[in-house]
Design a protein around this nucleic acid. Structure first.
Lengths: 344, 344
DNA sequence: TAGCCTGCCGAAAGGGGTTTCGAAGCTTTC
DNA sequence: GAAAGCTTCGAAACCCCTTTCGGCAGGCTA
């Protein structure tokens, strides 16, 4: 009950009228002095600023938002339980918005549509200026619909609705990148081990791999192998693969986890990486990629840039700039490590 | 410029006075009807609710907050770049607050004190009801100070100031837990490989290990080994250790990463896990713990519960309930997998 | 000296909602 | 039929700040 929460000036937070009273000016003048707007004499402004500092006045952003119709907040609606995609995206968005200018509400829907709707409503009553929806895979997800009074951008997982604004990694280009790198490393007998076939990411990456092989006049060793995004599968699949095609000299793994399984099996089989077999994978998840031996060459999805772009799209929409509707594919970048090129 | 952002009712969002006008009542009555407060005739209430639904009215939370002094928002100020700690904590906090009741501003300070101060100010002008500070290690961190008008709780990394409210994992108890489990598995020649010695987590876990060994009348094989939180170190350290003490039958690893390195070396040395050597580690980072062979027995820090507790503390402070100041240690829980007990 | 700018300042009207308190209108009760 | 008691509603103040616009000095010109 005792109001001892407030550290400095006992009681509630300082308000503009407090400042005005101390400075001996009107509310209006105080406001103008602090915001540097309107015609205020230098001396008066000085007096107001001193008063404000004295009682450590902080303008109430709520009241401000109420007036100018913008809150300077954005909602990040995610179903990415691990935080693996959402954190880089959040950081990118913060960067683009400018630190401190915009704050982000992070809401985890946990893959539950009802909870998502709940959070969406909460965000809207909070009058966020925009919403970024982050999925946990690159498969298209249902649209939130168009009767939302603020701009919405879908990141990572695109919206099923082509009239929404979506930004997603270009996995097909990534697949090309992987194969082109292997070829540049002198490999020609290339296999692919990927994750669950129902994932768009698995299909797109495989398609990119096939594209690049075709362009180079090469053929994949066997077929792309799909099962699950795990080390176990990486181990098992590579064992099977090498039994059938012992002369494979390059492997594209659908994820860093799968690649680690491949490395394991290579060791068991006595094949040296990268000398005998080069391995390139996807995601560039540092914890996995830089702790293996050798470290993994991996294709980074540029998630932070994805976040920046999403934020930019939100801005454009707020400012009324014509948004580029549809799905935009963001190319990844190859991060070369020891699994394709011997180091030291 | 064209105001086509708003999906439904063209123009701006519906306001309470719109509702009142349609229902043919005053603003005050409309408010009372919608919030179920005050004396409103059933028929009138019905009329208001229908009007509200008709124009899909959503109360402006900003205006509400302005009045009752509470925003229903909380700031999560973190330096956890990976999002490994912060995401479970966020989820726990959301749970405790009740989904949709409270929204969380997530701010990443990126380990930069200036950026942190920046974000802190932003949160305060946004009038958050409380702040949770999440560190990236369990080492005490500088306090934000006491001249903050809202309650602050430090999670994961405690505050250096004992008069702050902090909640941190009980790593010492975790160390005990690890050793007690190994002993229960019939092991007696136990070694410890941990991360950087400057980390409180490394020291605390080692202390717990020594405690438990002492209680059981056992001695550690060699000394606790400190270097870095990596698989590399786990590999190297265990190789050294087993050269010196070939009869080690249990290893406590300071992290799942280190444990994975240990498993690697065990395989190289032809030691079977868990038959010859049992391994228990810390963090229970699923991606690492469940993808190794065998899977890792690991001590989970209960981060989600940590988040829930932090949220509860915030609530208590808001409600004026006497907060339990000081550092509270939250025990972890043992998650048993194949690295200590053979499965199937 | 009168008239006219010009430069500062403040009263007031919001923005969207909540809450108090008084005023109706209606039904009882004597 | 009048007084009293309910219920129901609305006017107005308030939360904190921004912004418009009118007013008041003071300095300048004629």
């Amino acid at each position: 009950m005792s109001d001892n929460r407030t550290g400095t000036a006992g009681g509630r937070a300082a308000t503009l009228s407090d400042v005005a009273k101390i400075a001996g000016v009107s509310l209006a003048t105080a406001s103008k002095a602090i915001n540097g707007r309107g015609e205020v004499a230098a001396a008066t402004r000085q007096r107001v600023l001193e008063a404000a500092k004295k009682i450590s006045f902080t303008p109430n952003e709520l009241a401000r938002s109420l007036i100018n119709g913008r809150t300077g907040t954005v909602g990040l609606l995610t179903s990415d339980l691990e935080g693996r995609f959402v954190i880089p995206i959040l950081m990118g968005a913060e960067d683009a918005f400018g630190a401190g200018q915009v704050n982000v509400f992070l809401c985890d829907a946990r893959g539950d549509a009802i909870r998502e709707q709940h959070h969406l409503n909460a965000l809207l009553t909070r009058r966020v200026d925009g919403i970024i929806v982050v999925g946990r895979s690159t498969d298209p997800r249902p649209s939130l619909g168009h009767n939302i009074p603020v701009p919405v951008v879908y990141a990572y997982a695109p919206s099923e609705d082509p009239t929404d604004v979506s930004i997603t990694p270009d996995n097909r280009a990534g697949g090309r990148l992987a194969v082109e790198h292997l070829i540049a490393c002198g490999r020609s007998k290339i296999a692919m081990i990927s994750g669950e076939a129902v994932y768009a990411a698995a299909q797109d990456r495989a398609a990119g791999v096939m594209d690049a092989l075709g362009d180079a006049g090469l053929e994949l060793m066997g077929r792309p192998m799909f099962s699950e995004w795990s080390e176990h599968w990486g181990r098992d699949a590579s064992a099977m693969l090498f039994r059938q095609f012992p002369d494979i000299d390059g492997v594209v793994a659908g994820s860093d986890q799968i690649a680690r399984g491949v490395l394991d099996t290579m060791r068991d089989l006595g094949r040296e990486v990268p000398h005998d077999v080069a391995v390139v994978s996807f995601d560039n998840w540092e914890i996995l990629a830089t702790n293996s031996r050798p470290e993994l060459t991996s294709i980074d999805a540029n998630l932070q840039q994805l976040g920046r772009m999403a934020a930019t799209r939100i801005f454009d929409a707020i400012d009324g700039t014509a948004a580029t509707r549809g799905v935009e594919n963001l190319p990844g970048r190859l991060v070369i490590r020891g699994s394709t090129i011997a180091r030291r």
